[in-house]
Computed example of a mutant assay.
Amino acid sequence: MLTVDFDRLRIGPGLRVIDVGCGAGRHSFEAYRRGADVIAFDQNAADLADVRTMFEAMAQAGEAPDYAKAETVRGDALDLPYGDDEFDVVIASEILEHVPRDGQAINELVRVLKPGGALAVTVPRWLPERICWALSDEYHANEGGHVRIYRADELRDKIASRGVRHIRTGYAHALHSPYWWLKCAVGVRADDNPLVSAYHRLLVWDMMSAPALTRVTERLLDPFIGKSVALYFTKPAVRSGRR
């Protein structure tokens, strides 16, 4: 289940991509499939071990081109261990809402991006997230949980103020918003609740089968109740001093 639009980012062979806060690795795997050189970056060692295992399985199964590279790196998003202007594409999907010092994290995302490169940042959208917070404290008030709710325009301006240019805003996962509202209403750990279980089966079926009806329905609903907002930026190329 991808939140980032890879076609818009034009990720493909030869591009160097870093997925900051990669989690379970969904975006890293897609970049690897498309032939990019990928770094899956996270602070969670257990998650990175699983991502590394999947990279190895993909290589053995021929799911990624032989020339593509993929590695996992553990570290802190507030202090990325890379030089300036190193990556063609920087992805930060669903991480800034967890980071108290989000301004410093944004500085790092922009710093390591090459001039002319693309930055994609996704966070939970304001309205669906606000409803979740209203229904349940347990949803967000936990170790490593969400520390803030973003308004898309405020986050857009905050990122753009670091010297990148906003090029597009998109929305994703509208069908997931009611699922989380339901979980928050009955208890976020109540996975055995009949309604929660039934909705979860629907989402799994949708992800595995991708039927036209639900795909069209979600695209129509995304602008209104999409669970995530995706912001796309480019870093202006450095102009030559020659005249």
Score class of each variant (00 low, 15 high):
Leu2Gln: 13
Leu2Ile: 05
Thr3Met: 13
Asp5Gly: 06
Asp5Tyr: 01
Asp7Thr: 06
Arg10Ser: 15
Ile11Pro: 13
Gly12Phe: 05
Gly14Pro: 14
Ile18Trp: 14
Val20Asn: 02
Gly23Ile: 03
Gly25His: 07
Ser28Arg: 09
Tyr32Pro: 01
Gly35His: 10
Gly35Ser: 06
Gly35Lys: 04
Ala36Thr: 08
Ala36Asp: 11
Asp37Leu: 03
Asp37Arg: 11
Ile39Cys: 08
Asp42Phe: 12
Ala46Lys: 02
Ala46Gln: 01
Arg52Cys: 06
Met54Glu: 15
Phe55Gln: 11
Glu56Leu: 08
Ala59Ser: 14
Gln60Lys: 13
Gly62Lys: 04
Gly62Glu: 12
Pro65Leu: 01
Lys69Met: 07
Ala70Cys: 10
Val73Ala: 01
Arg74Val: 10
Ala77Pro: 12
Leu80Gln: 10
Tyr82Arg: 03
Gly83Ile: 05
Gly83Arg: 12
Asp84Trp: 04
Asp85Cys: 00
Glu86Gln: 10
Glu86Gly: 10
Glu86His: 03
Val89Gly: 09
Glu94Ser: 05
Glu97Ala: 06
Val99Glu: 14
Arg101Glu: 15
Arg101Gly: 10
Asp102Cys: 13
Gly103His: 15
Gln104Lys: 08
Ile106His: 01
Val112Ser: 07
Leu113Asp: 04
Pro115Gly: 06
Leu119Cys: 07
Val121Arg: 00
Val123Gly: 01
Pro124Thr: 10
Pro124Gln: 02
Trp126Tyr: 15
Leu127Thr: 11
Pro128Tyr: 05
Pro128Phe: 06
Pro128Glu: 00
Ile131Cys: 06
Asp137Ser: 09
Glu138Tyr: 03
Tyr139Ser: 02
Glu143Cys: 03
Gly144Asn: 13
Tyr150Phe: 15
Arg151Met: 05
Asp153Ser: 07
Glu154Cys: 11
Arg156Cys: 10
Lys158Val: 08
Lys158Cys: 08
Val164Leu: 09
Ala174His: 11
Leu175Met: 12
His176Lys: 07
Tyr179Val: 00
Tyr179Gln: 02
Leu182Phe: 02
Leu182Ile: 05
Val186Thr: 08
Gly187Met: 01
Gly187Asn: 03
Gly187Asp: 04
Arg189Phe: 11
Asp191Thr: 01
Asn193Gln: 13
Asn193Tyr: 13
Asn193Gly: 08
Pro194Ile: 07
Ser197Leu: 12
Tyr199Cys: 02
Arg201Cys: 01
Arg201Gln: 09
Leu203Ala: 12
Met207Glu: 09
Ser209Leu: 15
Ala210Gln: 13
Ala210Asp: 12
Pro211Phe: 04
Thr214Tyr: 04
Val216Thr: 15
Thr217Phe: 08
Glu218Met: 08
Leu221Gln: 06
Leu221Lys: 04
Leu221Trp: 09
Asp222Gln: 02
Phe224Asn: 07
Phe224Cys: 09
Gly226Cys: 00
Ser228Ile: 03
Tyr232Ala: 09
Phe233Lys: 00
Phe233Arg: 00
Pro236Phe: 04
Pro236Gln: 06
Ala237Gln: 15
Val238Tyr: 00
Arg239Thr: 11
Ser240Asp: 15
Ser240Glu: 13
Gly241Ser: 14
Arg243Asn: 11
